[in-house]
């Protein structure tokens, strides 16, 4: 049954309906809606004490020259491209050209607004957020065309999509831990999976292939892809939760399995 928690993400933040994509946002121009993609909620802007994703020396944003900013961007943001491409492939539904375009647009926007990124915070999450936002903007501009507007159900689905896209930005302790664990722990957790599970995860999450493509590649039914993927992810979450506990990123209470 549904519970209405007192710490619902909607209540403890300042989400407005336009920000949820449910109203006046429709038809705003790209520059305006981009603000959502760049101005992350305060909670994610807090440097996490064990954040390993935003590395590098402290930067003085006031005195940084454009050339230095370019160099910092290439050093820190560009290496995250493979992950962004995998994410873009999912959003692009197997359209490789669209996926490339999404990645490029993401980097253009990120570079243009790089001064707004706070060094030491989670750069990867920032970039992925911009990618989602870019993709939502494309949806929105498609929706203005008559064909898409004629189907009420489709509109409702896209609005819900915009609402859900925002939810990941209010991280739980476990999410913060996932974001800051060293790559070694991720590799160890992957290696502990059985071959069948690992293959599906690598194709889906690692490389961004669609379920249908994975089903064909591995010659298994679509339903098997889906069940293996969700079971593999649950196992990964379990072992990463343990790893986070051992490293002191999670306390005992948060490390408990908190399946609703």
């Amino acid at each position: 049954m549904l519970c209405i928690p007192d710490n619902s993400p909607v209540i403890d933040t300042q989400l407005s309906w336009p920000a949820l994509g449910l109203g006046p946002m429709i038809g705003t121009d790209d520059a305006e809606s981009l603000k959502d993609g760049v101005a992350l909620p305060a909670v994610i802007d807090q440097p996490s004490p064990h954040n390993l994703t935003g590395t590098g020396p402290t930067v003085d944003l006031d005195t940084e020259t454009p050339a230095e900013r370019l160099a910092r961007f290439e050093r820190e943001a560009v290496p995250l491209m493979s992950g962004l491409l995998a994410h873009a492939r999912k959003r692009a539904n197997g359209d490789e050209y669209l996926a490339f375009d999404l990645v490029q647009m993401t980097y253009e926007k990120a570079y243009r607004h790089f001064a707004q990124y706070r060094p030491g915070t989670n750069l990867r999450a920032w970039l992925h957020r911009i990618l989602d936002n870019t993709h939502n903007n494309i949806y929105r501009s498609q929706r203005r065309q008559p064909a898409a507007i004629s189907v009420d159900g489709l509109m409702a689905d896209q609005e819900s999509d915009a609402a859900l896209a925002l939810l990941g930005d209010f991280p739980s302790a476990e999410q913060m831990a996932l974001e800051s664990l060293p790559d070694d722990d991720i590799q160890t957790a992957l290696a502990a999976l059985s071959e069948d599970f690992r293959k599906v995860v690598e194709l889906a999450d690692g490389q961004g292939y669609a379920y249908k493509e994975i089903a064909e590649m591995l010659d298994i039914p679509l339903g098997t892809v889906m069940s293996r993927l969700s079971r593999a992810r649950n196992k990964l979450r379990e072992s990463l939760r343990d790893a986070a506990f051992e490293r002191g990123y999670l306390d005992a209470a948060s490390a408990q399995v908190s399946q609703p």
């Binding site: 519970c3 710490n7 993400p9 209010f170 690692g206 992810r233 979450r237 908190s258």
Partner: peptide, 26 residues
């Protein structure tokens, strides 16, 4: 939107996916 465990679950899935996207050597 109404269920915080499921909202947290969504955040964890996204975070896991982002980490795996960078970790599979592609």
């Amino acid at each position: 939107l109404a269920c915080s465990p499921c909202a947290a679950f969504l955040g964890q899935l996204k975070a896991l996916q982002q980490r795996l996207a960078c970790s599979c050597g592609c």
